[in-house]
Design a binder for these strands. Structure first.
Length: 199
DNA sequence: TTGGGGATGTAT
DNA sequence: TACATCCCCAAC
């Protein structure tokens, strides 16, 4: 399947967040290739977005990667416990990102279960392996050492997966950003509508 | 050097 | 609905 090119990521986070739905995230672990389908994303718009780590132009070592060119991995630790995966979006100088909130396991399910500390997975429970940002990172085994990795490289990348019709995409308010004031109402979360879609 | 807070997950 | 648990960074 075709790997997404740099140009895919150089657009606005809202555009990239919507277009990442149905795409496959591929990670080459030491043992095998792990693949998940992206089913829920959130857009973070940069200096104007109170929920974004770069709000008001905040520049630190952590946010540096966000200001760079789109198409790189941004991984940070949340609540001192879990890693969250983002794809940096927009062009150099614009600090946007797309947060991957939920995915569905496609390949390497056994390894993902092992990484999550689960011995046996029933078919009906497969989706639970990666249905959260922290779970996703734990399942495919990525940590902060992937931070800054080129998504157009070989270790981790995204490929054309399934084309999702626009009528099957829903937009919703983002989650757990209550501190962001009015911005917590903006419909910048995108998901595949499960009502007309089966995995 | 310090302390408050956070793009979560799990059990209850 | 509680709480585990610790990096990040601004302010001191």
């Amino acid at each position: 399947m075709k790997k997404l090119k740099r140009s895919f990521y150089l657009k606005s986070p809202l555009n990239v967040a919507r277009n990442l739905l149905g795409k496959y995230l591929v990670y080459r672990s030491a043992d095998e290739k792990l693949i998940v389908k992206i089913i829920e994303t959130e857009a973070y718009l940069g200096e104007e977005d109170p929920a974004c780590h770069t709000y008001k132009g905040k520049k630190t070592t952590r946010t540096q990667i966000l200001y760079g060119s789109g198409g790189y991995a941004y991984i940070y630790l949340i609540y001192g416990m879990y890693c969250c995966f983002n794809a940096v979006a927009d062009k150099e100088g614009e600090a946007g990102a797309v947060f991957i909130r939920s995915a569905y396991p496609i390949k390497g399910i056994k390894m993902m279960a092992k990484n999550r500390g689960i011995e046996k997975v029933l078919n009906k429970d497969i989706y639970k392996l990666t249905n959260g940002p922290g779970k996703l990172c734990q399942a495919i085994g990525i940590t902060k050492d992937i931070n800054g990795e080129d998504l157009c490289g070989k270790r981790i990348f995204i490929v054309e997966g399934e084309k999702i019709k626009s009528e099957n995409i829903i937009s919703l308010p983002r989650i757990n950003i209550d501190y962001a004031g009015k911005a917590c109402e903006y419909p910048w979360r995108f998901a595949i509508n499960k009502q007309n879609y089966t995995f």
